[in-house]
């Protein structure tokens, strides 16, 4: 069945980044626990504040539930549990929803605080280290060392991959 993809904002022009600067990539960042995460801005469809999550019993642990995004029903994935952050790093602050993934079936990523959009020079982007404390590196595509902390660049594909693909 055709989904209501047109209710989503228009897809970002793929060429946009290159026009601004061939040497930087823009990342939308957000926090979970003490970690700072980022996804390339063109992978983000929209960011929403605390959508109502309906829990789905029997669902995989990392699935927080389902949300209604203007008539389209999305699976809400709890970022912390998805990437294996230990539970004590969660706090009970209000969550935000990052809608990402492909337009036919996007996912809703449950994150804590939303950060800035950062333009990172390409040459500062490094492959992930073998170990990042408390994070499953399977979901990490790259990292970038910032002055005060580490930006963990997530692998959007891995995040939205259904259970059997893992």
């Amino acid at each position: 069945m055709a989904r209501q993809t047109e209710t989503l904002p228009a897809e970002a022009e793929p060429g946009v980044i290159d026009i601004r600067s061939a040497d930087t990539i823009q990342f939308s960042t957000f926090y979970f626990g003490r970690h700072l995460f980022g996804l390339p801005i063109e992978e983000i469809i929209e960011i929403n504040r605390a959508l109502d999550v309906t829990p789905v019993p029997l669902a995989p642990d990392y699935v927080e539930g389902v949300v209604n995004l203007r008539g389209q029903i999305l699976t809400a994935i709890h970022l912390g549990r998805r990437i294996g952050l230990s539970i004590e790093e969660e706090d009970d602050s209000r969550y935000n929803n990052v809608i990402t993934g492909n337009r036919e079936e996007p996912i809703c990523l449950i994150v804590q605080r939303i950060g800035d959009v950062m333009a990172i020079p390409r040459n500062q982007i490094e492959p992930p280290p073998d170990l990042i404390s408390g994070v499953d590196v399977e979901y990490v595509r790259n990292v970038c060392k910032l002055p005060e902390n580490l930006l963990i660049i997530l692998d959007g594909k891995a995040l939205e991959a259904p259970p059997n693909a893992n």
Partner: peptide, 22 residues
């Protein structure tokens, strides 16, 4: 239901209620 939840045999799908919740 999305691909993460499709395999759960207890559900046939989802629907939106009058108050907008799923």
């Amino acid at each position: 239901l999305g691909k993460h939840l499709k395999h759960i045999s207890c559900y046939a799908g989802t629907t939106l209620m009058g108050d907008g919740r799923v």
